[in-house]
Amino acid sequence: MHPTLQRLDELAAHLATRDDTVAVLGLGSAGAQRGRLDEHSDLDFFLIVEEGATSRYAAGTDWLAAPCPVVYSFANDRRGRKALYADGIFVEYAVFTVAELRRVPFRGARVVWRRADAPPGLTESDVPEPRPPYDTVEFHLNEALTNLYVGLHRELRGEHLSAARFIQGHAVDRVIALLRLSEGEPPYRDVFDPSRRVERTYPPQLLPLAEMVPGYRGNAAAARAILGWLGARFAIPGPINRAIEELLRS
């Protein structure tokens, strides 16, 4: 068994001895998508507890250290922490009651351990999958174009970091969405972060990320690459195309 999964099993076995715990859910590569687990994977999980126990488990780490000493941790949320074990396994977790879990957006969970009287359906969130207002080619194309337009104006103003986020961040996310719509649903897609595993899904000749994300000083070059990629695949409305080209000549 992979050391990360073994650690989660050890942790769940300890938590199963406590009266105020209900279940342990593995997430990410420790969840339903264990096929993507590798030596770089961290350990993500939810701990489900009885009413009144959330703050105790979120604030304390005695239970977390049961299988191995914890050498570093901090509260990254009022319900959870990030922590590093002495053997190098990095964990991120959150603590919820059953009622609170129903209001949390998540996908791909796996029951590692559940109490016999735990309710069914713990791996399913009642919160809908996050989607843009319109998940269409028209929407993503025009979002990408307006991201380039706004980003280039910020670049010309000297706001290089903000420009990079619009051009090399937001616009590239829209490019990835366009590929998803045209090439089909990719395996192991992270609905909360479109950048995950794109390098494995799309080869450089299809998604030239080195050209689209060249770095802090490369906003104009990135915008040219993205505009060229979009223009080779879709009909770009003339007015916005000309406006972006004019900014690129500035």
Rank of each mutant, 00 (worst) to 15 (best):
P105R: 08
E124D: 14
P105V: 10
F96Q: 14
A116T: 13
F106T: 01
D117Y: 05
E100G: 13
A116F: 03
E124Q: 14
P119M: 10
P120S: 04
L101M: 10
V95I: 05
D117I: 01
A116H: 13
V111C: 11
P120E: 10
T123S: 10
V127P: 02
P130F: 05
G121L: 05
A99I: 02
G121K: 04
V95E: 00
R131A: 11
V127S: 07
A118I: 00
A109H: 06
R115A: 07
P105N: 13
W113M: 02
E124K: 10
F96W: 15
F106H: 09
T97M: 08
W113E: 03
W113P: 02
S125Q: 05
D117T: 07
A118R: 00
T97Y: 10
E129I: 05
R114W: 06
V104L: 03
E129P: 01
L122H: 02
R102A: 14
V112F: 12
P120C: 04
V111D: 12
V98C: 08
D117M: 01
P130C: 05
G121Y: 10
P128I: 13
R131T: 13
R131W: 03
A116V: 09
V95C: 01
T97C: 08
V104F: 05
V111E: 15
R102Q: 15
R115L: 03
V112S: 11
V127L: 05
L101H: 07
P105Y: 15
A109P: 05
A118N: 06
V95P: 00
A116R: 13
G108K: 09
E129S: 07
D126Y: 10
L122A: 03
A116K: 09
V111T: 15
A94E: 15
A116G: 14
R114T: 05
A118F: 01
R114N: 11
V127H: 07
V95Q: 04
G121D: 12
G121W: 05
A116Q: 12
G121S: 06
P119H: 06
F96V: 00
P128R: 11
R103V: 04
R107A: 15
R131I: 06
E124C: 08
L122N: 03
P120H: 04
R110P: 11
G108C: 06
T97G: 13
F106V: 02
V112A: 12
P119Q: 14
E129C: 00
E100H: 03
D117P: 02
P128V: 11
P105G: 04
A118K: 02
P119L: 13
V104H: 08
R110G: 07
G108M: 00
V112T: 14
D126I: 01
D126M: 11
R114H: 15
R131S: 11
R107M: 14
V112E: 13
T97V: 04
T97R: 09
V95D: 02
G121R: 09
G108A: 11
P128Y: 12
A109S: 08
P128E: 12
W113R: 06
R110A: 14
R102C: 09
P130Q: 04
A118V: 03
V127F: 05
Y93D: 00
R115K: 13
R110M: 10
E124S: 09
R102K: 15
P105E: 11
R114F: 02
